[in-house]
Amino acid sequence: MLTDTWYLFNKYVKISMRMPLWSLFSLIQPLIWLFIFGSLFEYFAELPGFPADTYIDYFVPGVLIMTVLFGSSWAGVSLLREISAGTVDKMLASPASRSAIVLSRVLHSAVQVVIQALIVLVAAWMMGATTSYNPIYILLAMSIILLLGVAFAALSNGLAIMLQREEPLVIMGNLMTMPLMFFSSAMVPEKFMPEWIHAIGIVNPIEYAVTGIRSILAAEPDFNGFAMGFGVTFLFSAATLYWAISAFKAYRD
């Protein structure tokens, strides 16, 4: 299974390298949000009790999560394209491991998302955000990004298999990203949230991921907060991956 995953993963990487702009296209949204929200909510930071000096400082972990969501929530669309192109059938008719087919795709999306997140981080730095730029902490933050990327790519791939069509899949992708993001502290600190939204945040994996990243990139890193975020994201990605693989294995008309 692992060797199959490796060969297939290589294939996707090769394809991405041949059209880098294509893989970077989903960066447009997070970059625009970074710019718009950074300006729009600039004066939020002056509110009493705001946890950061400037809004953009607060927003960096949020925009990193956004990058993950926009980058991997539509990963299933290309699976559908591959199915209709016939390459999936060809793999399925071969002895290649079925898990490897999903795993390689999901890993590819996740790695792609990590690279995008690094680019967003550079953009944030250029816009003057002052978060921790310690490479070790960034690496740790990226581990959460990777896991979250795996989770959402797996969700999208699994949904693609179940829905079989692009249109409902894109709707589901939107549904996964937008509300979940607003139900977390990605953009607005907990204190400023209505109680009920805060309550929903407790079962929202994105909330844990964003808190985890915020903890590790803070001026004084909070390792407990990070561990919590990492743990929850890990469980979340393992569960979604398992679900996606079993959906794919059951895919037989």
């Binding site: 209709s84 192109a85 016939g86 390459t87 059938d89 060809k90």
Partner: peptide, 9 residues
């Protein structure tokens, strides 16, 4: 298969 099973890229 009926569709081309080779990868275009």
């Amino acid at each position: 298969a009926q569709e081309t099973g080779v990868d275009y890229f």
